[in-house]
Amino acid sequence: GSPLAQQIKNIHSFIHQAKAAGRMDEVRTLQENLHQLMHEYFQQ
C-alpha cells in the first residue's frame, strides 16, 4: 500500500497501545494525527 496507508495503520496501533496504557492525552494527540492523515489520504 501507499506510505500514507501504512502510516494510518501504524497510528491505529499506537492509539490501541496508548489506550491500553491509559495515556488518554496521547490518545487524543494520535487521533488528531489520524484525522489529518485520513484527510490527506482521501485528497489523493
Results as ranks from 00 to 15, higher is better:
His39Asp: 06
Glu40Gln: 13
Gly22Ile: 02
Gln36Ile: 10
Asn33His: 15
Gln7Ser: 05
Met38Trp: 10
Ser2Glu: 11
Leu34Val: 02
Gln36Trp: 10
Asn33Asp: 08
Arg23Ala: 05
Gln17Ser: 08
Met38Asn: 01
Glu32Lys: 13
Ile11Pro: 00
Ile8Phe: 03
His16Lys: 15
Asp25Pro: 02
Glu32Pro: 01
Gln43Thr: 09
Lys9Asp: 04
Leu4Tyr: 04
Met38Gln: 04
Gln17Glu: 11
Gln44Cys: 15
Gln43Met: 11
Ala21Tyr: 03
Met24Pro: 04
Ile8Cys: 06
Lys19Thr: 07
Gln6Leu: 10
Ala5Glu: 11
Leu37Glu: 00
Ser2Val: 13
His12Val: 15
Asp25Met: 06
Arg23Glu: 03
Ile11Asp: 00
Ala20His: 05
Glu32Trp: 13
Asp25Phe: 06
Asn10Phe: 10
Ser13Asn: 10
Gly22Thr: 02
Gly1His: 12
His16Arg: 15
Asn33Lys: 15
Ala5Lys: 09
Pro3Leu: 14
Lys9Val: 05
Lys19Phe: 13
Lys19Asp: 02
Ser2Lys: 08
Thr29Ser: 10
Leu34Ala: 01
Leu37Met: 05
Gly1Pro: 11
Leu4Met: 05
Glu32Cys: 14
Glu40Tyr: 10
Lys19His: 08
His35Asn: 09
Val27Asn: 01
Gln17Trp: 10
Ala21Asp: 07
Glu40Gly: 04
Tyr41Asp: 01
Leu30Ala: 04
Phe42Leu: 09
Gln44Arg: 11
Leu37Pro: 00
Ala5Gln: 09
Ile15Pro: 00
Pro3Ile: 12
Ile8Gly: 00
Ser13Gly: 09
Gln7Asn: 03
Glu40Ala: 11
Gln17Leu: 10
Gln31Thr: 12
Gly1Glu: 11
Phe14Tyr: 11
Ala5Ile: 14
Ile11Tyr: 05
Arg28Trp: 07
Leu34Asn: 00
Asn10Met: 15
Arg23Lys: 09
Pro3Asp: 14
Gln7Tyr: 07
Gln6Trp: 07
Phe14Leu: 15
Leu30Pro: 00
Lys9Gln: 08
Thr29Ala: 13
Thr29Ile: 13
Met24Ile: 08
Glu40Lys: 12
Arg23Gly: 01
His35Met: 12
Ala20Glu: 09
Tyr41Met: 06
Met38His: 03
Gln31Lys: 10
Ile15Ser: 00
Gln43Ala: 11
Gln43His: 10
His35Pro: 00
Ala18Arg: 02
Val27Thr: 02
Tyr41Lys: 03
Gly22Met: 04
Pro3Tyr: 14
Gly1Arg: 10
Thr29Leu: 12
Ile15Leu: 07
Ala18Ser: 03
Met38Tyr: 12
Gln36Val: 09
Asn33Tyr: 15
Leu34Gly: 00
Leu37Lys: 03
Met24Phe: 12
Leu4His: 03
His35Asp: 08
Tyr41His: 04
Ile8Lys: 00
Met38Ala: 03
His39Met: 14
His39Leu: 14
His12Gly: 03
Asn10Glu: 13
Ala5Tyr: 13
His39Phe: 10
His12Trp: 15
Asn33Phe: 15
Val27Pro: 00
Gln17Val: 08
Gln44Ser: 10
Arg23Tyr: 04
Ala5Asp: 06
Ile8Ser: 00
Gln36Cys: 07
Gly22Ser: 03
Gln6Ser: 05
Ile11Ala: 03
Ile8Met: 04
Glu26Cys: 13
Ser2Arg: 06
Glu26Thr: 06
Lys9Leu: 09
Ser2Ala: 10
Met24His: 09
Asp25Tyr: 05
Ala5Trp: 15
His16Ser: 12
Asn33Val: 15
Ile15Gly: 00
Thr29Pro: 02
Ala18Phe: 04
Ala21Arg: 06
Ala18Trp: 04
His16Glu: 13
Ala18Gly: 01
Phe14Gln: 15
Pro3His: 12
Phe42Tyr: 11
Gly22Lys: 04
Ser13Gln: 13
His35Val: 11
Ile15Tyr: 03
Arg28Leu: 08
Leu34Trp: 02
Val27Glu: 01
Leu30His: 03
Gly1Ala: 11
Gly22Pro: 00
Gly1Asn: 12
Asn10Asp: 12
Lys9Asn: 05
Phe14Cys: 05
Gln44Tyr: 13
Ser2Phe: 11
Glu32Ala: 12
Phe42Trp: 12
Met24Asp: 06
Ala21Trp: 07
Phe14Gly: 05
Thr29Gln: 13
Leu37His: 01
Ser13Thr: 11
Ala5Phe: 13
Gln43Asp: 06
Glu26Met: 10
His39Thr: 10
Gly1Trp: 04
Gly22Trp: 06
Ala5Cys: 10
Ile8Thr: 01
Leu4Thr: 03
Val27His: 02
Lys9Gly: 03
Gln43Val: 08
Met24Glu: 07
Glu26Ala: 05
Pro3Arg: 13
Leu37Tyr: 02
Gly22Gln: 03
His16Trp: 13
Glu32His: 11
His16Gln: 14
Gln7Lys: 10
Gly22Tyr: 03
Ala20Met: 12
Lys19Pro: 00
His16Leu: 14
Gly22Ala: 03
Gln7Thr: 06
Glu40Asn: 06
Arg28Gly: 03
Ser13Glu: 13
Asp25Asn: 07
Gln7Val: 08
Asn10Arg: 14
Phe42His: 08
Gln7Gly: 02
Gln36Tyr: 09
Phe14Ile: 06
His12Ala: 08
His39Lys: 14
Ala21Gly: 04
Arg23Leu: 08
Gln17Asn: 07
Glu26Tyr: 07
Gln44Met: 12
Gly1Phe: 03
Ala5Met: 13
Leu4Gln: 02
His12Lys: 14
Gln17Tyr: 07
Asp25Trp: 09
Glu32Val: 08
Gln36Phe: 08
Gln31Phe: 12
Ala18Asn: 02
Lys19Ala: 09
Gln7Asp: 03
Leu37Arg: 02
Gln17Arg: 12
Arg23Gln: 05
Gly22Glu: 03
Phe14Met: 15
Lys9Pro: 00
Asn10Leu: 15
Phe42Ser: 07
Leu34Arg: 01
Val27Leu: 06
Gln36Arg: 13
Gly22His: 04
Arg28Pro: 02
Met24Ala: 06
Leu34Tyr: 03
Leu4Glu: 02
Ile11Val: 07
Ala5Pro: 05
Lys19Glu: 08
Tyr41Pro: 01
Glu26Ser: 03
Gln7Glu: 07
Leu30Cys: 05
Gln43Phe: 08
Gln43Asn: 10
Leu37Cys: 04
Ser13Trp: 14
Phe42Asn: 07
Tyr41Cys: 14
Gln31Gly: 04
